[in-house]
Design a protein around this nucleic acid. Structure first.
Lengths: 145, 145
DNA sequence: TGGTCACCGTTCGTCCCGTACTATACGACT
DNA sequence: AGTCGTATAGTACGGGACGAACGGTGACCA
């Protein structure tokens, strides 16, 4: 039922995975979900939450239906094609190597004073660590790990 | 002396920094340099080593001169404008937060069997650790840290 | 003189992505 | 009721990023 064949990227699979997890979502739901957990291992700019579902729907991986009240937003959900594509991708257990993109190191490489950048980076990592430990607590509490 | 004003991205600064470090380089030199150290904190696809210097040169940040023998490759070097732009950027000690992009976690999020992906990831990290420790040794030996 | 291998370089089309901006709902305040 | 502020929600757009695929070049050896 694809009207148009497109190439699915990491971003695409991120959206498909969210929809698999949460069922129906509007673009805004997707945006918030991306900004909370997913961003930690797969950063995606917010406009993707609006542009990509349209692409995916056009290619038959998502269904879209219009809300009747309020803003009449589109609500997206996986189609069978979408579920299948996601499954095929996920079960191929060969993943691209992880990447790190750290502007502060690049600046140091370019000759910047390391001091302030290190300080900033350490603060950031501490905060992130705390955030993640929070998630871990939640998970432990919720699922009895 | 810019003939055209362009916006400099992280990739642009990565190239400028390389040229500051090594002086004159051809695209291929740049490509190899990107693939060795820089990739560890700022991944860049190899086509950038060919496309971006042209853009930078057009905007006056690089000079280009043609080799006389062999493949008559272009050799790039920083202009004063390039050096200055790099310096301005580097000395502004506010850096974007680091990002991680790890497809294997995304696959697990999508419902993949974690086992094989973890194994693969751990192997990868071990190898990377060794590589980096190698660099550290070289640095210690060379500069007496 | 041609084979082949490693090295070197480019083209192309699509997707990505940041910036800037717009619009809508809703409560509070007057 | 009006209007203001704020959070929520959504869009337009242009140029850079990126991967796939291909094309050339030169050294060396049979």
């Amino acid at each position: 039922m694809k009207s148009k064949s497109i190439k699915l990227s990491g971003n695409s699979y991120a959206l498909l995975a969210l929809l698999q997890e949460f069922g129906e979502m509007t673009s805004y739901d997707i945006k918030r979900a991306l900004e909370s957990s997913i961003e930690n291992f797969w950063p995606v700019p917010h406009t993707t939450a609006y542009e990509e579902p349209a692409r995916l729907a056009a290619a038959g991986y998502l269904s879209a239906r219009q809300e009747t009240g309020g803003r009449r937003r589109r609500v997206y959900a996986l189609t069978d094609a979408g579920r299948e594509a996601l499954h095929d991708w996920a079960t191929d257990s060969v993943a691209a190597p992880p990447q790190v993109r750290d502007e502060s190191i690049l600046k140091i490489f370019a000759g910047a004073e390391p001091g302030p950048l290190y300080a900033q980076g350490i603060a950031w990592h501490r905060a992130k660590l705390e955030e993640l430990q929070g998630y871990l607590q939640l998970a432990s509490a919720g699922e009895g790990f």
